[in-house]
Each structure stands twice: as structure tokens, then as C-alpha cells.
Nucleic acid binder design. Structure first.
Lengths: 364, 364
DNA sequence: CGGGGACGGGACAGCGTTTCCCCGTCCCGC
DNA sequence: GCGGGACGGGGAAACGCTGTCCCGTCCCCG
């Protein structure tokens, strides 16, 4: 009943374990053709499937990539995850998926698990508020992981270790706000992500900065989660605000630093009978495909999600195995790491996509 | 700089490997308190993280769950994946994610990989067209996997092995069609999933059956993929059809057997200036959250996605460990086994959700 | 015809854990 | 005071595979 092992195949083929191993895996040594065929035939007949765990143990390389996202159901993360998974899988590796729901403790646990699984690399998507106590644990884990040869890629925010792919959040948001002002918007509301999520912070920060430069102050700042539900809440707050605020013909333009939130808001606003972009304009951030099909289509910052994901995977799969050149104790403070791959951070820019959700009414 | 191993901890704590192992993992034997503390202190100080691969090898249980979906960026799968991941993670296991893009060969490769990783269970979401040649490979793999004690759960369609969670596709679609007819729809278009995807087939089949019973024949049958892009294509075909068809005031009601496709169609129809539900009505299948926030909101069959996912995980994690005899505070309780092993298939029903996308115009 | 390489294959020592089994101790009851 | 449990701890054999080293052949060349 136990699964068929390599030794079974070897025995069946009448060869040694070593030979069987050489045949069935891309070993440096190429076995004789006749033998190879015999082994392969046996393997096929027996339905041999290698034990990746054992292989990993022996090779000390697992072929596993850890992917950490906040919420896989958020199209932003899903889009990235899709690309990452495809690329990784194409390279004969596997993706170990973890969701943190933006819980710092969950993230610690997730990282522990992933590291325990001996992932070759970690891709952390989305920003994290490093700085408090639990974060020390995270930093320690990541540092230890990197020290042991693990690759780390932070996507959306630096994680203090490894490489980073980061959008110019503030700049893009700034640009967006400017564009909206040019469009004619004067009344603004912004979202303060719950608990100071850094990327949300810099997005809103950049947005507000642009407003300030234009002499405008957001008339409303709302605290809500960067989720669909957060978007619902946002819509509720907006309605409340509209009721109390002085009647004003000009639409209130609200900036949600995540598309999924903006999309949720769109839905909830409509449910509440508030027209978009007539009474309220909505802008998001991210550029998920869903925003192109919504009604109204969503104004947003389009991030090159695919490219970002691909870059991450590229880094992650780069020279998959590299033995260490332990040189002993060198004198002087010279950096021992010679092959310094230099590029440790890539900035990507997002493009302002003005769409219907912020169109200034033609005022028929 | 190799990672710190259990032996390092043991040495540091001045105990044997066996003892260290017993302390750091829920072993049946509880070591002495003093020793335990010493070991734990060492582990913490050294930053020990167990090697899950080695543990898996020794225990012959990996704590890994393989999740196979067609497309993680499809909200249907993403919603399920989200729930599965959460539940699994809460049980100290990990999710190994794979996407097949509905490629049968990719699926074979995916299953091989997952099995190679020694996953404890496989959850296959979405339907697959078992029946052709490659499918033999899949069946063989799954059967072998199950024979070796692996659990298999098919979600959306039976995979021939293990347990299944299957929506009453045909019945639900039948009900939906009936409801739409009651609403007043008379003109219909349906989607034939590309390459005969079974669940799409039974959905469309049920839908058409209901039409037939009502003496209606769909005036259009379109072949397109069950994706967002497929939805775009669908919209294009519809426009073409509308142009050629005789002018008719009644809207054409199109049934897309997947929400994501319906949502894509919604977007593309609008881009083409076709009003929904004025000129074309759209119904989907699945009940993804996005359909509630779209404009118009999407008529669909709401599947209990969360429950389905939870059921799958429940089966998958069922008596995962037989040790754990640690007689703690809680005794009695559940020691049942095998009893409900009988249940091998669960049917879930979907609820017809008539929303705006199929509303029959109030006609001024 | 002999020597040296090249080559194909096999034995075996790990890889990091778990776990079975054994062995001292200590405690208890008789 | 002695035998027997119970208990806490250690030794060592797996788990399935890789990779290094080693050995026997065979071929080619001098």
C-alpha cells in the first residue's frame, strides 16, 4: 500500500538505487541509454512518483516558493498570485500560498510555516506595518531566512530584507489627485487605511499633498479597511457626510487607496441611491481588471501588476542554487558579498486612468 | 550558514535529540518540565525552526493540502481558495496552490507535483473533462494517490475518486431559466463552454431544458471560454447577433454559466453601447461577491461557496492524526471514526438570485 | 600487447526528524 | 530491604532520496 519508491523501481529494473535516481532526475551523469529505458519503463509501469520531500532533504532545495498575500479574494492579490503561480509553475516549482488578512500575528505564523517548509524564496505581497513588537519577530525570521540563503522579495513595500518591487505610491496618487483637480473636482474625501498600513498611507499622503498644493483640503477623512467591506463602510460614511454637509452641487470625490475598496464603495453607493459620478466620484488604486468592466468604469492608478509579478518571480528563480564561498575571516570592513547583484529595489510607476467614476458631469 | 537544526538545540540544551524532539513537538510523551523549559529556551535563543520536510519524511505526513483551481484570478475560485486557505491554515496545515487554466496537461503536471510533494489531500475545484486520453493519466494518479491514503475532494464535479461536493447545476439552471421566463423573458441566448466543460454543460443543459419545456428555443448558442475574456467575446457575438436579428423590442436574455464571464460581458456590452438589461439581459452562475456590487447587479445562481469550501476542508482534515492522545482537560467528546466515511457525495443547491441584470424593463 | 582513460554502474554516507526500544532511577508496596 | 512499575531520558534505526567515492570494463593509443 505504501507508495512506490525509487528502490522499488530500481529493483524492478534490476539496477541500483543510484542509477535509478540518475535516470529519473536530471542528474549530471547521463546513464546508458539501454539502462535508462529500462528504468523509465519500470517507473512508468509502477507509477512511480518521486518523493519531493526526500529529494528536498537530500538536495537541500525544495522547489517551493512561499507567497504571502493579504487576501487572495482581493482581485489585486489574485491577479498577482495568478501570474506568480503561472511563472513559478512553469519553472517546475510550486507555490505555497498564505493569506494573512492583514493580521500581523497570522503573518508571523505564516512565515514560520513557510520557512519550516524550506521554501527557496519568499514573496511578500502588500504592505505590512513593520515597527511594532511582533515585527521584531518577522524581521528576525526574514533575516535568518535570508542568511540561510533564502531569497526574499517584497512587493509593494520593502520588508527590510532582500529585494523590493515598489510602486511610487505617493507620486502616483499625487498625479491622480492633480488630474482630478484638472478635471474640475474641488471637493474631496480620502481614506485613511485602518491601523496605518504603509502603502495606503503613502497613497493617501500623496493624494492629500497634491490637494494641499492646490489649496484644497479634503473635507472628509475616513478610516476603513482596504477591502470590499471597507468600501461598503466607506459608502456609508459618505452618505452620512453628504446628509450633514451643506447642499452643494459639486460632487464629492473620494479616493480609496485600493481598487477593491473602491469597487465595493461603488456597489454600496448605488444601493444607497447615490449616483456616481453625479453626486460622488470614486477613484481607486491598483488597476485591477474588474475596474475596467464596472459601471461606471473605475478611475484608478493602473499598476503593471503582471510585470511586477514577473519581476518578482524572476528574482526568485534567479540562479536557483548557489553555493556559498565561505572565505574565512577577511580583514577590514570590506563587504564580503562580491557578486552583489546591485539592484535591490525596483520602482514601478502607475498610470493615471481617468475613467467614468470620476467624470465631471456634463450637466445636461 | 546552515539553518539551526534540532541537534543544535539539543546540544545547546544538553539533552538528546530524542528529548528535544519530544519537547518541541506535540509528542505523546511529555518530557520533564525542567528539561522542557531548558530546551524551549535554547530553541528560542537559537531561533530554531523545524524542517518540515524532514518531519514529513519521518512522520510520513506532510501537513500540505493541494488545491487545484482553474484560475485563481476568477473570483469564483478566489472566493473558494480564500476560505480553503483560511481553514487549512487554522489547522496548522499549508495550502499548495496550482492553477491549470483549464489545460488538461497542466493539470496532469500539477497533480504529479502535488503528489510528489506528498500532500495529505487534494482539493480539485472546478470541473474537468475526464474522458479523453490524458484523463487516463489523471485517473491513474488520483487512484494511486487515494490508494496510498491520500484524500481527494472534488468540488464542482466528481473526479472519480474520493468525495465530491457538487452543486445541482442542471436543477439550479433549470430553476433560473424558469424564473426568467416568469419574469417575462422570451428570447434567450446560451453559452456552450469551450470544449465541453462538464459543469458548464450541465448548467447550460438545465437552462435549455427549462426553455424547451416552456416551448422556447434559444435563438443563439455561443461557444466561448468561461473567463472574463470569454465574456468579452460573448458580448461581441451578441452584438453581431442583434445586428442580424430582426428588430425586436424584447431584450435578449443571455445565460453565461460562470459569473466572471457574465461580469465580463456586462463590461463589454456597455462598451459597445448595448444597454443591460434594456437590450440584453445577463445571467450568470456562481454567486461571487462581485456580482452584488456590479451595475447592474448580476442575476445569478448563488452557490454557498463558503460552505462548500468549508465542507471540503472538513473532509480533508478529518482525523488527520490518530496520535494526539494527550489526555488533557477535555476528555470524552468525539472519538468517532469511519461512521460518516459513508458519505461520499454532497449536493449543494444554488439559489436563484434575480437582480437587475435581467430585470424586465418597466418600459417607461 | 600493455597501460591509461573514460565511462557506466554500485555502495554508502548523509539530509533533519521521529519513534521504537532500551536503560537507568526512583518510588512504592509488601 | 527487595522486586517491580512507572517514568524520564538516550541510542539508533528508519523515512526516501542524492551525490560522492569507488570499482570494474572497455576502448584507444603507444
Amino acid at each position: 500500500m505504501p507508495a512506490v519508491r525509487l528502490s522499488d523501481v530500481a529493483q524492478d529494473a534490476g539496477v541500483s538505487l543510484a542509477t535509478a535516481s540518475r535516470v529519473l532526475n536530471g542528474s549530471a551523469r547521463v546513464p546508458g541509454k539501454a539502462v535508462a529505458e529500462k528504468v523509465e519503463a519500470s517507473a512508468a509501469r509502477l507509477g512511480y512518483v518521486p518523493n519531493a520531500q526526500a529529494q528536498a532533504l537530500a538536495r537541500s532545495r525544495s522547489g517551493l516558493i512561499g507567497l504571502v498575500v493579504h487576501d487572495i479574494a482581493d482581485p489585486y492579490f489574485a491577479t498577482i498570485a495568478r501570474e506568480v503561480q503561472q511563472q513559478v509553475f512553469a519553472s517546475q516549482s510550486q507555490v505555497l500560498l498564505t493569506q494573512t488578512d492583514r493580521e500581523i500575528d497570522t503573518e508571523v505564523r505564516a512565515l514560520r510555516s513557510l520557512i519550516a517548509q524550506q521554501v527557496d524564496a519568499l514573496v511578500l505581497v502588500g504592505s505590512h506595518r513593520y515597527g511594532n513588537d511582533s515585527d521584531a519577530a518577522i524581521s528576525t525570521l526574514l533575516e535568518g531566512f535570508a542568511r540561510n540563503g533564502g531569497k526574499v522579495v517584497g512587493m509593494g513595500q520593502s520588508v527590510g530584507v532582500g529585494r523590493t518591487i515598489v510602486p511610487d505610491n505617493a507620486a502616483a496618487a499625487h498625479e491622480l489627485a492633480t488630474a482630478l483637480i484638472v478635471e474640475g473636482h474641488r471637493r474631496f474625501a480620502v481614506v485613511q487605511g485602518i491601523a496605518g498600513i504603509p502603502s495606503a498611507g503613502s497613497r493617501t499622503g500623496g493624494f492629500v499633498a497634491a490637494l494641499t498644493e492646490a489649496g484644497i483640503e479634503p473635507e472628509l477623512s475616513i478610516e476603513a479597511g482596504l477591502t470590499r467591506d471597507g468600501g461598503y463602510e466607506l459608502a456609508e460614511r459618505i452618505e452620512e457626510h453628504l446628509e450633514t454637509a451643506a447642499a452643494d452641487d459639486a460632487p464629492l470625490c473620494v479616493f480609496a487607496p485600493a481598487d477593491v475598496m473602491a469597487l465595493g464603495a461603488l456597489g454600496e453607493l448605488r444601493r444607497r441611491g447615490i449616483s456616481v459620478p453625479g453626486q460622488v466620484a470614486v477613484a481607486g488604486f491598483g488597476g485591477v481588471p474588474d475596474g475596467a468592466d464596472s459601471h461606471p468604469t473605475l478611475t484608478t492608478i493602473a499598476l503593471p501588476l503582471h510585470d511586477m509579478a514577473r519581476q518578482a518571480v524572476e528574482w526568485v528563480l534567479e540562479h536557483p542554487v548557489q553555493d556559498e564561498q565561505g572565505g574565512g575571516d577577511e580583514q577590514g570592513g570590506q563587504h564580503e558579498n562580491a557578486a552583489d547583484d546591485a539592484i535591490t529595489e525596483v520602482h514601478v510607476r502607475g498610470d493615471v486612468l481617468l475613467r467614468e467614476s470620476t467624470a465631471v458631469a456634463a450637466k445636461a
